[in-house]
Design a protein around this nucleic acid. Structure first.
Lengths: 213, 213
DNA sequence: GCTCTATCTGAACAATGTATAGATAATAGA
DNA sequence: TCTATTATCTATACATTGTTCAGATAGAGC
């Protein structure tokens, strides 16, 4: 049924299909509802239906498993953001602005609805190396979405060009900071829309492009 | 030597002076150089020179100890910020702007130089209740410093009054977000000054108050 | 069918958070 | 000053954790 060249892939089905993926999937589900701080390797193994030691054939230690989860979460967030942006397809300044807000809001919604994911991604448990993270940032889909959104804002005249060089890091900082502070309970939920309003105002107002309504 | 009315305080010196404070002090020192994720209650107790069980007379569990550390760290940060701001005493727009930057920079410096502290304060281990945190925010010295700084900016004409309602949450979000992202390695260190530049520009530019230099 | 190798299990270990019973020392009252 | 009391700390124990390692097992290749 399976050719010999697929032997290796087939052998990966030994007992549990792709056990590495099974571990990441189970860990993700358990983290989602309990938070990283309450996850044990043994618990994940039990959930997968496998002995704890089995994990060590795929991950050097528990941290590596959590980092694996983290990587998939960054991908998931990027998915959400791509979908959120794709809703607005026009080329007007209003559309560019809608895309920009959708981008920020999807980030916040993710943090709010998946707080345990958010805390893992940006917390102490997701030990991606600084090099790996730097690479990830420059290559990431989310970063390119942000770049594109800001380019649109500038091209449609919805943004002060003088602020363009600060665009990505400023927008990411604002949105990430507000999300973090709200998720951890330091600011009330309503703050996020206000922060978005303020950001939009402060980025665009010099051109007199006053947001409607 | 000690009057009977001080008996209770004196009894607190039983064996180790104020053991509760000793635990917090030791935990703080150990967290500072190793990070919360590597701290054990037993290790802290050993460092204090006391049996692990002794901790349970002052803290219901390990989390409570860490929260205690967190509370002192918020105080320490506020101290740093008060000192940073106090350097600039003038009443000009330039001074107001200098105070504003000093406030942000002291926040970032804290995060950068005391990354382990920063991660505890805003991470998953510092489980202050949402109510307590909300209270803390509105009452905190740091928040009042920020309020005052923004008032100064507005009064000296260094800031667009239309943005004043968003001032605190916007500034805190930007500075906290940039600090977090840099501390966790998602953005390079140099980003912070750029973010501050961008923030200052975006807050003030409508008035044509262009920063010198 | 036999051998080999990847894959997983079982048992073990040290370290951890925490509970409980008891020891110890300071205080209060006589 | 002696005794009883109470706050403070210790010793011990237990379940759970991450991790290691020797061995069992099942599938692949001949």
């Amino acid at each position: 049924m399976v050719t010999s060249t697929l032997g290796r892939d087939q052998r990966a089905n030994y007992h549990h299909g792709n056990l590495e993926q099974a571990f990441i999937t189970a860990a993700t589900a358990m983290i989602r509802e309990s938070g990283v701080e309450h996850i044990s390797l043994r618990g994940v193994a039990a959930h997968v239906g496998v002995s704890p030691s089995a994990a060590y054939h795929y991950f050097p230690d528990k941290d590596a498993l959590l980092s694996g989860v983290g990587r998939t979460l960054f991908d998931l967030l990027a998915d959400k953001q791509e979908i959120a942006v794709s809703v607005f397809t026009g080329t007007s300044a209003e559309d560019a602005r809608a895309r920009f807000r959708a981008l920020g809001r999807s980030y916040f919604d993710w943090g709010k609805n998946e707080a345990n994911f958010f805390r893992l991604m940006f917390g102490v448990f997701c030990c991606l190396t600084p090099e790996g993270r730097e690479l990830e940032r420059s290559e990431s889909r989310a970063w390119r979405l942000l770049e594109k959104s800001l380019n649109d804002l500038e091209l449609t005249g919805a943004m002060n060009p003088a602020l363009r060089p600060y665009g990505e890091i400023l927008a990411w900082s604002v949105v990430h900071g507000a999300t973090s502070l709200i998720v951890e309970g330091h600011l009330p939920d309503e703050s996020f829309e206000a922060v978005l309003d303020g950001l939009e105002l402060s980025l665009g107002i010099v051109h007199g492009v006053v947001k409607k309504k």
